[in-house]
């Protein structure tokens, strides 16, 4: 649905996006993670035909950026970083204007549909300027969906929202995902990325890594299993380390921390070995690194 090859953007001398190569499948929710100034918004602007790439190629919804820009604009929806609503105009009027610009055939019906869907129908006559931040965000999302785009770009949809409003927006994104839309989601919120996205790209000028959330964990840390013992694990370390499927062993307090590739397969054997060696196992679990650790690892090592 979205495909880029060496997509780059320079702003008079400074590189904002450096040779980005990506492929995003139809129906996928793709997280685009990166620190401030990483070039996320710049990437979204190139993919929505708002600014021209300096180099490289991109294809969105089957259309080439730079060649079929009007077609791209017709087939993608965008939630820009700033809501950019007409604050003096009513919510309804804001959407009507966009429905017309997006060539929606049945303007009033479609506007009503999305106002109701996002819970703004009762407030449709009120000026958008009187809305709370969360309501403005919902109105902007409605605006991005009026023409039923196949691909949706969301640039930090929950930035600056309180937890409740953020949850509403997130639930709505989850709903859109069920409808099979392709979503490109820029975010700083790792928890959000983890919960919503099929795959995540960590990006800072360059693409640092792309994988599923669990794939990213494995990529950086491998899989780690913790055994909580009733007593000191020291006596078992050397025996465990000699097992060929164990990559690494560490003893911390009364915990034994192992790195191995396929714990589902080897854990039963490990448990047997430990028990027969006399260990008193209290708990066994997998150590899950937060996405934050992974992100900081990736972004910090540029």
């Amino acid at each position: 649905m979205i495909k880029t090859i060496n997509l780059s953007k320079n702003f008079n001398g400074t590189t904002a996006v450096d040779r980005l190569t990506l492929e995003i499948n139809s129906g996928e929710v793709f997280g685009f993670l990166g620190p401030n100034g990483a070039g996320k918004t710049t990437t979204v602007r190139m993919l929505t035909s708002l600014i021209a790439p300096s180099a490289g190629t991109a294809e969105v919804a089957g259309f080439r950026v730079g060649e079929a820009d009007q077609q791209i604009r017709r087939h993608v929806g965008i939630l820009t970083e700033a809501p950019g609503l007409y604050e003096r105009l009513s919510a309804e009027r804001n959407l009507q204007i966009y429905a017309r610009l997006y060539e929606v055939p049945e303007v009033d019906g479609q506007v009503e549909r999305y106002l109701r869907l996002l819970g703004l129908w009762e407030r449709r006559k009120d000026a958008a300027g009187t809305f709370s931040k969360g309501m403005k965000q919902k109105l902007s999302i409605a605006r991005a969906l009026l023409h039923e785009p196949r691909v949706l770009f969301l640039d930090e949809p929950t930035a600056g929202l309180d937890p409740e409003a953020a949850k509403l927006v997130r639930d709505f994104v989850a709903e859109l995902r069920k409808q099979g839309r392709t979503i490109f989601l820029c975010t700083h919120n790792l928890d959000e990325a983890e919960r919503l996205c099929d795959r995540i790209a960590v990006f800072n000028q360059k693409l640092l890594s792309v994988d599923t959330p669990s794939g990213l964990r494995r990529q950086i840390y491998g899989r780690q299993i913790v055994f909580h013992l009733a007593d000191s694990p020291e006596p078992y370390v050397s025996a465990i380390a000699s097992l060929n499927y164990v990559k690494k062993v560490e003893a911390i307090d009364n915990k034994l921390l192992l790195s191995l590739d396929d714990p589902e397969r080897y854990n039963p054997d490990l448990i047997r070995q430990l028990v027969s060696a006399g260990a008193n196992i209290q708990f066994v679990g997998e150590l899950r690194h937060s996405l934050e650790d992974i992100y900081l690892q990736l972004v910090g090592h540029v």
Partner: peptide, 14 residues
């Protein structure tokens, strides 16, 4: 000031 140009330019208006 309302930063409404970006969504506007994202529409298929020439």
């Amino acid at each position: 000031t309302t930063r409404s140009l970006e969504p506007l330019l994202a529409t298929p208006i020439t």
